[in-house]
């Protein structure tokens, strides 16, 4: 089947015009913000993210509290900053799990023989047959709820998609004209693999990975909503989103800001991924 392997070209955006330069600059600025928030949140915070003040609960955004305060009077802005590390950790680890497994399966299928390809194809089908939350719920039945379980579940459920894309890329590159040319020129199999096939086939992974991070945070937040996610007082974006949901009509700022962080992070990482892919493409 040639379905998902096609989608990678879509997300890799080979045919896309390069994103506007101003966008790239903004994206880089946001990534810098995320990096500081992750490694030195104290530099950006206005107050202790876990400090409660029940008498100041549900205050709308103001100069004192840029993103308002939550149900316990905690500063939402400082919590959003604090939550960057935890959220990115979930996103990055889940994506890493998915990619690692995807690479293994996709590599076996794309570089092995027909039999191996067929076998991996079936394994992939089996993984596909456990969609998202179903797999997560099954894993929770096995090991109980928690952030680690949620991360593993999200990672596993993305693996077959990555595996297909990687296999597709490998097959496409292996049969492409320049690899054929390299073979004709008498380069050894190993050299062709390392020098030509792998670099070209794996380039789209960058884009996939950036897309996956935001998705993983969103999926993990769904598990938080179902009461099977993060550990308080951890200020993880998905957990904040699900905790603030019941106050949506009276205190919109509880969900809108963590929600915006997820969306902007997804858009930013995707844009940068495309820029990288585009540069990579022009280098080829």
């Amino acid at each position: 089947m040639s379905d998902l392997e096609l989608s990678n070209r879509a997300v890799a955006g080979r045919s896309l015009p390069r994103p506007p330069r101003i966008g790239t600059v903004l994206a880089l600025a946001f990534v810098a913000f995320l990096a500081v928030a992750t490694f030195a949140p104290g530099l950006l915070q206005t107050t202790d993210p876990d400090a409660i003040a029940p008498r100041d609960a549900f205050e709308p955004p103001s100069w004192a509290h840029w993103f308002g305060t939550d149900e316990s009077g905690r500063d939402v802005y400082s919590r959003v900053v604090e939550g960057t590390a935890a959220s990115l950790l979930i996103g990055v680890s889940a994506t890493a799990i998915g990619l690692a497994l995807g690479l293994l399966l996709g590599g076996l299928a794309g570089l092995g023989g027909r039999v191996l390809d067929f076998a991996v194809g079936r394994v992939n089908e089996v993984l596909f047959a456990f969609p998202g939350i179903l797999l997560a719920l099954l894993i929770i039945v096995l090991w109980g709820p928690g952030p680690v379980t949620a991360t593993i579940a999200v990672g596993l459920s993305t693996a077959p998609g990555y595996a297909r894309i990687i296999r597709g890329e490998l097959v496409r590159v292996r049969t492409s004209s320049y690899v054929e040319a390299a073979r004709v020129l008498g380069h050894g199999r190993a050299r062709v693999l390392v020098r030509h096939i792998l670099p070209n086939a794996l380039a789209p992974l960058v884009v996939l990975a950036t897309l996956g991070i935001g998705q993983a945070v969103v999926w993990a937040s769904a598990l938080s909503y179902l009461g099977l996610g993060a550990q308080p007082p951890a200020a993880e974006w998905g957990a904040m989103l699900s905790a603030g949901r019941i106050y949506i009509t009276t205190a919109w700022w509880l969900t809108v800001f963590p929600g915006l962080m997820i969306v902007v992070t997804t858009i930013t990482t995707t844009m940068l991924g495309r820029t990288l892919a585009a540069r990579d493409g022009s280098r080829r």
Partner: peptide, 15 residues
């Protein structure tokens, strides 16, 4: 598209 794809169902439903 990216925003739509990043919307959690539970949040969208509530809104």
């Amino acid at each position: 598209e990216l925003t739509a794809a990043a919307l959690p169902h539970f949040w969208l439903a509530t809104v």
